[in-house]
């Protein structure tokens, strides 16, 4: 166990924000889901007591006799904003006094940094370069993520859960977004804390050995099936991808129509919305992790080989 190596990685100035990010995401997920559970309990109670549901929790939340429904922005909101600005300023000042921004030697194209890492918020994409060719990991995948994010509100056809925390009413949405966000954070984590020189896999505590050589041979799926020749390889890949989309789509469909509420929401979803959702869910939320698994567990580099691109 090489603790100095762990410390070297953890205390690299540019890695400190990641530690903060992981802590922050952890706290706020807990904080949000806790409020969601509370609302879910309230929903069960109100569904059981229709009389109470007529009045309780319909306008303002915990309400006391004599309170006005609205408050003045000045001072009630502005003082909070001012306080938040002060706290952020103090936090940033203390952080800046305690930790110096990194500055390496002058840029030198003749001396390659090893490992050469992208800034931490893009390190996830760099990590995906292990599993996909650059045209996919660096260009197509980010564009797909952005398209998926932008389409997100147009694919969610449920009117429930607008403006309050809830888990039960929005399971599909929360699981979808949660899966995507988790993959992104996990890739950042692996890219920052696991990958060492030569972008090789070093477990936490393992010493970064700059002379290490990996004799790992990667394989392609068609070759493992004993198929050679451009046409055969392309065809096998195509069939595999189509089969994968069909089976993953079927599994996702089973998952999103599990409960009665899910089926009612599904009935409100148009075919176009649903097929778009399926495409992004299969590609990003299932396809990417499956490809990562194939590479890490079975050393499979390409599934689909064509003269123009490999996947």
């Amino acid at each position: 166990m090489d603790f100095s190596q762990i410390w070297e990685i953890l205390s690299a100035a540019d890695n400190v924000p990641i530690v903060g990010l992981l802590a922050g995401v952890g706290f706020f997920v807990w904080y949000g889901l806790r409020q969601g559970r509370e609302m879910d309990r309230l929903a069960v109670r109100l569904a059981a007591e229709p009389e109470l549901a007529k009045t309780h929790h319909r306008k303002t939340q915990p309400y006391e006799e004599g309170w006005e429904r609205e408050v003045q922005v000045w001072p009630h909101l502005l003082k909070i904003e001012f306080l938040a600005a002060m706290i952020v300023t103090v936090l940033l000042l203390v952080w800046s006094l305690a930790l110096n921004a990194p500055l390496e030697e002058p840029a030198n194209p003749n001396q390659t940094m090893n490992p050469a890492k992208a800034p931490w918020y893009f390190v996830g994409l760099q990590e995906l370069l292990v599993y996909f060719d650059p045209w996919f990991a660096g260009v197509v995948l980010p564009l797909l993520i952005l398209a998926g994010l932008m389409l997100f509100p147009y694919l969610d056809a449920s009117p429930l859960g607008t403006g309050y925390y809830t888990i039960r009413q929005r399971k599909v949405v929360l699981v979808s977004f949660g899966a995507g966000f988790s993959i992104w954070l996990a890739a950042i984590f692996v890219g920052t804390f696991i990958r060492g020189p030569g972008w090789m896999w070093f477990w936490p505590g393992e010493t970064w050995d700059h002379t290490r050589v990996v004799f790992e041979k990667t394989r392609n799926l068609p070759e493992m099936l004993g198929i050679h020749g451009a046409a055969g390889e392309a065809l096998v890949g195509l069939v595999t991808v189509v089969l994968f989309y069909a089976s993953a789509g079927w599994a996702i469909h089973k998952l999103v129509t599990r409960t009665e509420l899910d089926r009612r929401i599904y009935a409100r979803t148009t075919s176009l919305q649903y097929l778009t959702f399926q495409f992004f869910a299969i590609t990003l939320l299932v396809g990417v992790p499956v490809k990562i698994l194939l590479r890490l567990a079975f050393r499979i580099k390409y599934v689909w080989i064509t003269p123009w691109f490999n996947l």
Partner: peptide, 29 residues
């Protein structure tokens, strides 16, 4: 330092803002 860490902090707060909007369904019609 303030410029550097402020930028990193902003990346984090923007992501958390997105997370909150998703959790509360605030992106809906």
């Amino acid at each position: 330092n303030m410029h550097r860490w402020g930028a990193h902090l902003m990346v984090i707060t923007v992501w958390l803002h997105m997370l909150r909007v998703v959790l509360t369904g605030a992106y809906k019609k």
